[in-house]
Structure formats: structure tokens, C-alpha cells
């Protein structure tokens, strides 16, 4: 049986009909038409469907939509400010952090939650925060650079990415 749900997605309140067994992922993609949120396993194993729920990154495939009423849902579609890209989007675009682009929405949302609380996250903090999001294309380092660069851009520390790379290298390999 479908019930009427009131969801606040990217600041827009929408009424949708969905059965109790639908995940937030299904409702976003199939009922709200927000296909920016991806899926790779539907079992919580890949991170592709990460969205923010009350500011925290969650796996949309493992959250029931009925449990999301009266909570703030943020998806990749809400990341930019109108046509202006979020610093994370800009950094991902310019630094080669998106290749096939399929893990990108989930990466961006997890990274946004991190930067919202810790804009100057260290390389290791970025890697730990994103460790539940798999990417098969990039080898991850360009994503780390993009997240760090975006965080610094948003705080006005406009260090060019090359310098950031050198700074990280000078800080030593955190796992070497």
C-alpha cells in the first residue's frame, strides 16, 4: 500500500506516494525524478547512493523513505547554488576527480558533509571520511586533492592544487 510522504529534498518540500518498503534511493530516483543519485549494489557496499540526511552522509539504499519525513535530504542536484557550481563540483571538474562520473554524486555528498564540519581536513581525514565510497576509475588521489582544494577555496585559502600536492608530500606519506 502506498502512503503519502512529505519529503524535504534540497530545500524543496514534495509530496510523494510510496509504499513502506521503498528505500530513499528508489523514491528519489523513481518517484522524484532525481536520478543524480546513483546505485551500484543496493546493499550498502559501494557508497554510490550516498546522500545527506540532516547533514550526515547516509546510504540511500539502506534508508526507508518513510523514515525520512521531516528530515532534510540533500542530493547532488542541490549542491550547486543555482547555476553556480559548489567549490567541490568545481574542484572535481578541474582536477580530474570525475572520470566515468558514476561514483561522483556519492563522493561529492560524502565530501560535502566532511567539509561542512572540517573545511581544512587533512589528507588522511579525507581518505578516512570517503573510505566507504568506492571508485574504480581514478585511483582516488585526484578526489583527495579536489576535496582538500575545495575546502580551502571555501575558506579563502586559495592554495593552487599543485602546491597542495607538494604540501601533502612534504607532510610525508601518511601510510609510508
Amino acid at each position: 500500500m502506498e502512503t503519502a510522504l512529505k519529503l524535504n529534498v534540497n530545500g524543496e518540500v514534495r509530496q510523494v506516494l510510496a509504499p513502506a518498503n521503498h528505500s530513499l534511493l528508489e523514491v528519489l530516483r523513481e518517484r522524484c525524478g532525481l536520478t543524480g543519485t546513483k546505485h551500484g549494489c543496493e546493499l550498502g557496499e559501494c557508497g554510490a547512493c550516498t546522500v545527506l540526511l540532516d547533514g550526515e552522509p547516509v546510504l540511500a539504499c539502506l534508508v526507508l523513505a518513510v523514515e525520512c519525513e521531516d528530515r532534510r535530504v540533500e542530493t547532488v542536484e542541490g549542491l550547486s547554488n543555482g547555476a553556480a557550481l559548489h567549490p567541490l563540483q568545481q574542484a572535481f571538474a578541474d582536477l580530474g576527480a570525475a572520470q566515468c562520473g558514476y561514483c561522483t554524486p556519492g563522493m561529492l555528498m560524502t565530501a560535502k558533509a566532511l567539509l561542512d564540519s572540517n573545511p581544512l581536513a587533512s589528507e588522511m581525514e579525507v581518505r578516512e571520511a570517503l573510505a566507504g565510497n568506492l571508485c574504480r576509475c581514478t585511483g582516488y588521489w585526484k578526489i583527495v586533492e579536489a576535496v582538500q582544494w575545495a575546502g580551502r577555496m571555501s575558506t579563502g585559502d586559495m592554495v593552487p592544487p599543485q602546491c597542495l600536492r607538494e604540501r601533502n608530500a612534504a607532510g610525508g606519506c601518511s601510510h609510508g
Binding site: 532525481l34 543524480g36 549542491l79 550547486s80 557550481l85 563540483q89 571538474a93 570525475a98 562520473g101 561529492l108
Partner: peptide
């Protein structure tokens, strides 16, 4: 910047 970058970072692709 790759030509498909903006589409991919905004969920439009």
C-alpha cells in the same frame, strides 16, 4: 576541463 565534467559533477549526465 573535460567537456563532460560539469554534467558529471552536477548529476545531470
Amino acid at each position: 576541463r573535460r567537456v563532460d565534467a560539469v554534467g558529471k559533477v552536477s548529476g545531470r549526465t
